[in-house]
């Protein structure tokens, strides 16, 4: 009797029923499976959200420490842009812009949309991201146009004896 039953379809072990012989059975997704998959997806999304929290708690973004020498002030003419990097835990590219006589700006070069490299367009007086035509204000780094969701992170520029230094801006705004 037991031998006879082993040929019964209901006796096929669960792991075997995952690999059926006919293709139609193998490719068929029934609604139960679909619903279970949605449940799994839901768990995965919650997990992803948790990872963001853990990352934010465990690795808070540190402000830039001290002043960093960039270049000599006479190397960058008015309307020019100068690229430089600051090495900390990671290398972050920045741009230095000589807006007008005595007016300097420094922004992170990574576009806030998809981290393309932005550049200063002197003819427009704006910072342009060539990837999807996002525009930032060269004065404040605010988004003027296009897909970027946030303004460019900004550094403070100080000129000392003809040399350009950058440092973290004093935090006056809290998000």
């Amino acid at each position: 009797m037991a031998k006879k039953e082993s040929h019964d379809r209901s006796e096929i072990p669960a792991w075997k029923s995952d690999f059926p012989i006919s293709e139609e059975q193998a490719t068929h997704v029934n609604r139960r499976e679909f619903a279970k998959f949605l449940g799994l997806l839901s768990g995965a999304l919650a997990l992803g959200n948790g990872v963001i929290v853990i990352r934010a708690l465990a690795f808070p973004s540190k402000p830039l420490e001290g002043e960093h020498f960039v270049c000599n002030a006479d190397e960058v003419a008015v309307g020019e842009m100068f690229q430089f990097e600051i090495r900390g835990n990671e290398i972050i590219p920045y741009i230095l812009i000589h807006l007008e006589e005595g007016e300097w700006r420094a922004f992170e070069q990574k576009c806030t949309h998809l981290t393309c490299a932005v550049r200063y367009r002197e003819d427009l007086g704006k910072i342009e991201c060539p990837c999807h035509h996002g525009f930032f204000s060269a004065d404040t780094g605010e988004v003027l146009q296009g897909p970027p969701p946030r303004s460019l992170p900004r550094l403070e520029v100080v000129i000392k004896e003809g040399k350009v230094y950058v440092r973290e801006e004093k935090q006056d705004k809290t998000v």
């Binding site: 449940g39 919650a46 959200n49 948790g50 929290v53 934010a56 973004s61 998000v175």
Partner: peptide, 23 residues
Amino acid sequence: ALQDNIYFALTTFIGSFLLALAS
């Protein structure tokens, strides 16, 4: 989270977690 807004991340995580439990 890219703007250092930890509370938003925390709140959405709790919400997301509850929704996953509900699922």
